[in-house]
Structures are given as structure tokens and as C-alpha cells.
Write a protein that binds this DNA or RNA. Structure first.
Ligand SMILES: [Mn+2]
Ligand SMILES: [Mn+2]
Ligand SMILES: [Mn+2]
Ligand SMILES: [Mn+2]
Lengths: 221, 221
DNA sequence: AAAATATTTTAGTTTAGTCTAAAAAAATAA
DNA sequence: TTATTTTTTTAGACTAAACTAAAATATTTT
């Protein structure tokens, strides 16, 4: 139905569309896919012909309902495979993304259905990202970036924004992971850095780190 | 290192080489890969340039040591994935081949190492085919085609030759699978058909079926 | 040994997906 | 409102992997 290249375009456009609320431009897609704008124009035409996205020349693109379905299914597969790699094969959460990039293109609805059951129908992947259901619906959870919290607010880490190896290993070194409870002890207005409490320890956290951690705020102290 | 197409050529040539003891011809490869001889010639040149096979124009091809390694590793992955699909995801043995055809191309040594351990280091796939080790070595077992057995010989089914759905479902219908013990009650010289005993039942088996079942003969009655 | 047949290779196209360079359109600045 | 800059598209070329048709080589038959 869709080639490997087409699937990767759709997946990336889906992500770009949810991150940047405005239209998705040719240059943005090119950057995201590490390719040239002229290549994007060609592929976008092909995908528009396949009715998975709308292309207004010189304006951006937007996925059709069909396109959203295809894209979210690839993301569903990616995240289920990541859960499998971590939960069943004991991979570390910073090692699974590249392998999942390959596995997400395996074509078999039955395989995914069985994998989902085998993993006990997980809602989130190892990085805290929600796993779309078969219809592309995503469970939305209330979460904020750590950088948005105020002094004395508490919460639990529910996800990471960028899940590159460097960042994940930074967290590991401090035994911070999904599920870890934190409290903001202090916040510096000058550079956005924070002091947070984790268990009995206090950590200095730069703004860059604080902008990469998703927190679910604990309302009742 | 190798493209999808290259991997499929190498795998097929490996199989052809072990089945037909003579050299592997262009037409044979073309038939096996469902492609045209001219396409084979092109690809064979490319693979020869990559030092994974030797090509004597107008004579056949043969894999180099490097080519054998690459090919057997793909077969290793294919068979490990088949074990996974049957043992862990409860797929039926006639449903796994097509999915394994895709999964065999996933590139990650670590993944295969962990999958092997997860499956408890299996020696055979669900169809009784041996799983090559990391170095391409295959455990050779003494086995004969059922068609080669004589009257009154006993044995246990250890594999199937062609593992198409039709044949596997034929076996299922009769509750015959790998591990099933059989005894040859009679053999018809005219058409090669047999009567075999399975548990308390007797089955009439055509020559075609008998040539598709691998048996390990039980020496001591 | 020559003729006929079968196999294999070469030559020239095709398609998907990419690229560079140039043209066109849109956005921004003067 | 022109001029300049940025973004996007078009035009033309390239590679991998396939194809068809024709040429070359090998095999088999007469
Ligand atoms: Mn990922
Ligand atoms: Mn993830
Ligand atoms: Mn198989
Ligand atoms: Mn098999």
C-alpha cells in the first residue's frame, strides 16, 4: 500500500503537524527527514495523489483523515515494538528507538494485534509517549514540562520530550526515570535553571533539561 | 551493508546451492526469485563486485565464504523470528513464513542475540529446519524423507520439506506434526503411496506427501 | 560438424527516490 | 511600492532494481 519512504514521510508529517499547530511547510519536512526541499515537493505530490494529504502549492501540507490513520498506525507499531524491546528483551530505553524505526514498517495487522496482547495492552511506550489505538486515538493525559512548574509544586515524571541517548543517560546517572516523584525546591529566573528534590537528594537542573521532562502535577501536596 | 534485494538474492542462492549440489544457474535464480534472467545477471554482477559470490559468465554462481555468512545469518534471523511468532505470539506454523520474510531483514545483531536468549536458544524452527548459529554453522541431523522408509520401519517426524499452508493444514487436519511418531505399515510400488500408523490410526499417504516429510528413524524398534 | 534450441548476457527503457541548479512565487525590507 | 531575501517548485540528472528485445554463447539434435 505504502512504500517505506512514503511511510516515513507520513509519520514525520504527522509529528510535525502535532508539534507545530500551524501548517507544515516544505522546508520543515525536509529538515525533519534530512532531505532536500525539492525531494519533499516530489513526494508530497505523490502522497497528495494518494489522498493521504492535501497540498496547496507554496502553502503547506496537511494530512487527510486517511493520512492520519496511516501515520498513527506506524507510530502505534513503533511504540509497541519499543515496549517489547524494553519489557521482554531487556533493552535499555535509550537503545530501542533505532530498532523500532525498522520494525515499525513490518506489515501485518495480526502481528500487531498479538504483540499488543502479548505486552498486556500498554498505553505508553518506554519514553512515556502514548500508544495510539487501532483507530488512531491517543489517550491524552494532563502533563506539563518541568520548566513550567513553580516553586514548591510536586509531581511525577511521565515522559521525556527528546529521547536521545545523551539525555536518557543523563537521567539514568541520577536514577531519574518515568514514575520518579519530584518537587521543585527553587527556580532561577535569570537562566530558568531549577533545584529539584528527588527522593532524599537535590539536583541542579538546567533550563534545557527542565524543558525535556514531562510532569504530571500532584494536586494534593 | 546489503540492500533488501541483495539480501534476498543471497538467501535464495544459498538455498539453491544446498538443494542442487551442482552450480547455481541464472535461470534457476530467476525462477526462485520470480524475476527475469536479465535482472539476475545484473544483480549477480553487483554481488560479485561485492565479493559475496563468484560469477563465471555463462556458467553458474557460487557463494564465497563471506556470502555464505551473510546468507546464513539472514536464514538464522528468519527461523528465530518464526520460533518467536509460534512460541510467544501463538501463531500457527502455517502463518509465520510471510511475516518472517519481512523480519529477517531487520538489522541489529544485539536484537538477534537477545531474541535467541529470550527463546532459550532453539535449534530448530517450527517447521523442523535447523537454525544456524552466529557463525553460520548448522546442526546436521540424521533424517530421511518418509518416502525413503521401508515397510515396518518406525520413526519420528522432524521436519517438513515444503512448508506451504496447504500442506501444513493437511497435516493439522490429521493431527500430524513435528514430534509425531509414525510406522510404515505398507508401501505401494506402483505409485509410491504408503499406509502409515499414527497413534492408533492408519493413514493413506500419497507419494507427494511422503516426499515432504522428514523422518528420524528409530533404530531400536 | 552443422543446425536447431536453450541459456545467458547486453543494450536500452522504466519507476522510485534522491540530488543540484535554476526559475517562480511569497514574504520581508527599504 | 519597489527591491531584496527566503521559500518553494520545476527541470534535468543520477542510482537501484526491475523490465523487454536482441545479441552472444552454450548445449543438444540431426
Ligand atoms: Mn522511538
Ligand atoms: Mn518512544
Ligand atoms: Mn519460513
Ligand atoms: Mn521455517
Amino acid at each position: 500500500m505504502f512504500t517505506l519512504a512514503e511511510e516515513n514521510y507520513l509519520k514525520n508529517i504527522y509529528h510535525l503537524q502535532t508539534e507545530n499547530s500551524e501548517g507544515v511547510s516544505t522546508n520543515l519536512i525536509a529538515e525533519s527527514l534530512q532531505t532536500k526541499p525539492s525531494s519533499v515537493t516530489d513526494m508530497v505530490k505523490k502522497l497528495a495523489a494518494k489522498k493521504v494529504l492535501l497540498h496547496k502549492p507554496y502553502k503547506g501540507v496537511s494530512l487527510t483523515e486517511k493520512g492520519r490513520k496511516v501515520a498513527s498506525n506506524i507510530i502505534r507499531k513503533h511504540r509497541l515494538w519499543e515496549v517489547f524491546l524494553v519489557e521482554k528483551l531487556n533493552f535499555h530505553w535509550d537503545e530501542v528507538h533505532e530498532i523500532a524505526e525498522q520494525l515499525e514498517h513490518i506489515q501485518s495487522d495480526e502481528l500487531i494485534k498479538r504483540m499488543d496482547a502479548f505486552l498486556d495492552f500498554p498505553d505508553f511506550d518506554p519514553h512515556g509517549d502514548p500508544i495510539p489505538d487501532e483507530n488512531g486515538n491517543i489517550k491524552v493525559t494532563e502533563k506539563k514540562l518541568l520548566s513550567e512548574l513553580k516553586k514548591n509544586q510536586r509531581g511525577v515524571i511521565v515522559g521525556v520530550k527528546e529521547s536521545g541517548s545523551d539525555f536518557l543517560q543523563f537521567l539514568d546517572k541520577r536514577k531519574i526515570n518515568i514514575g520518579t516523584k519530584i518537587k521543585v525546591l527553587g527556580k532561577e529566573f535569570f537562566d530558568g535553571s531549577m533545584i529539584i528534590q528527588v527522593r532524599n537528594e537535590q539536583f541542579f537542573i538546567s533550563k534545557k533539561i527542565a524543558k525535556n521532562l514531562f510532569i504530571q502535577i500532584s494536586e494534593h501536596v
